[in-house]
């Protein structure tokens, strides 16, 4: 089953891997500019991206939520989403479009509360 199949929730902080979706580009201010439409990640994209610093530090990707198969799943939900929601008051309120919101696991769990924080999340920090 792929994330493109109906009903499957998407993890908005996934790895750079073929078949995943490119959903955002980390900007110079640390925020993430979300793509109006996600782009399917190709093997060539992965190869090129890995020539530079860690792709997960420079982009945001989405993949199917693995739920219990993921170490971040705390039994009832995504612990990353919970942490993001807990810090929601740290970020200015902002409204922006997100191409995967309807299928996003974090949004399914916490709704718009988590969206503002999500925009500031970088999946991984790369060495300088």
């Amino acid at each position: 089953m792929t994330h493109r199949e109906a009903g499957r929730a998407l993890c908005p902080s996934a790895r750079c891997a073929p078949g995943n979706l490119l959903i955002g580009i980390v900007q110079g201010d640390g925020g993430v500019a979300l793509l109006a439409e996600p782009m399917a990640v190709t093997a060539q994209f992965v190869a090129t991206a890995r020539e530079g610093r860690t792709p997960e530090a420079r982009f945001r990707f989405a993949d199917a939520c693995h739920r219990g198969g993921c170490a971040k799943w705390d039994g009832a939900g995504c612990s990353v989403a919970a942490a993001a929601r807990a810090m929601a008051d740290q970020v200015p309120a902002a409204s922006f479009d997100c191409a995967i919101r309807a299928a996003c696991q974090w949004h399914r769990e916490y709704g718009a509360e988590v969206c503002g924080t999500c925009r500031w999340i970088v999946t991984e920090r790369a060495p300088t």
Partner: peptide, 15 residues
């Protein structure tokens, strides 16, 4: 796009 690297992961953010 794959070559973009703004260094945004290394700056201070609201978080």
């Amino acid at each position: 796009i794959a070559r973009i690297d703004t260094g945004g992961d290394l700056v201070a953010t609201p978080l």
